[in-house]
């Protein structure tokens, strides 16, 4: 029996006051995670401060499952930067490098062309039909930092949802049965 037996015993011996304490501590964990995420959004100015690389189009720099930290500042976009952009009609953001920039004299608007390091041609085929350039509003942020492999957790969880539910269930049980 051992660990499992202890767990069941501790669930049986729950008191109402203890249940409330556990609920509060669970709530604290959830809210602090939310606070950290929202704070990151404020600091980086990007609506999703962390993205997971899903394709191999930037290899060998970024592989599938790597994590990128984004930053969205007022600084103008320049060639060579790695940007994350959303194309109209596509849900999944793309991480590619800027290879051409044309910045307007009067309005300061930019026309940007991107390309994946590992792709043969530029991205005009990925853009919406007839679209030649990306504008500022397509761009969600530029990549400033890099962490390898960590993103595999999210990739596995989105592709095999059962693992996600098992993990959430196990963590929930652990929080409920913890006694300090």
């Amino acid at each position: 029996m051992g660990w499992i037996g202890e767990t069941i015993d501790s669930i049986k011996s729950l008191q109402i006051r203890q249940v409330l304490t556990q609920a509060v501590s669970l709530g604290m964990i959830v809210t602090s995670a939310l606070i950290i995420w929202k704070a990151l959004m404020c600091i980086t100015g990007s609506e999703s401060p962390v993205v997971v690389v899903l394709s191999g189009s930037m290899e060998p720099g970024f592989k599938r499952g790597d994590i990128l930290f984004l930053h969205m500042s007022k600084d103008p976009i320049r060639a060579g930067e790695i940007v994350v952009f959303n194309v109209d009609g596509r849900e999944i953001p793309i991480v590619h490098r800027v290879i051409k920039v044309h910045e307007r004299q009067d309005t300061g608007e930019v026309d940007v062309l991107t390309k994946g390091d590992n792709n043969y041609g530029d991205d005009r085929l990925l853009y919406a039909h007839g679209q030649l350039w990306l504008q500022r509003h397509h761009i969600m942020g530029r990549a400033v930092g890099f962490l390898p492999y960590v993103g595999w957790v999210t990739i596995i969880m989105t592709e095999k949802p059962i693992i996600k539910y098992i993990l959430i269930g196990a963590l929930g049980l652990l929080v409920i049965t913890s006694k300090d």
Binding site: P76, R78, A79, G80, I99, K100, V101, H102, E103, R104, Q105, G108, D117
Partner: peptide, 12 residues
């Protein structure tokens, strides 16, 4: 005259 900056990658 139209663009204050044009950047064209030629080789990488």
């Amino acid at each position: 005259p139209k663009n204050s900056l044009n950047q064209i990658s030629l080789w990488d």
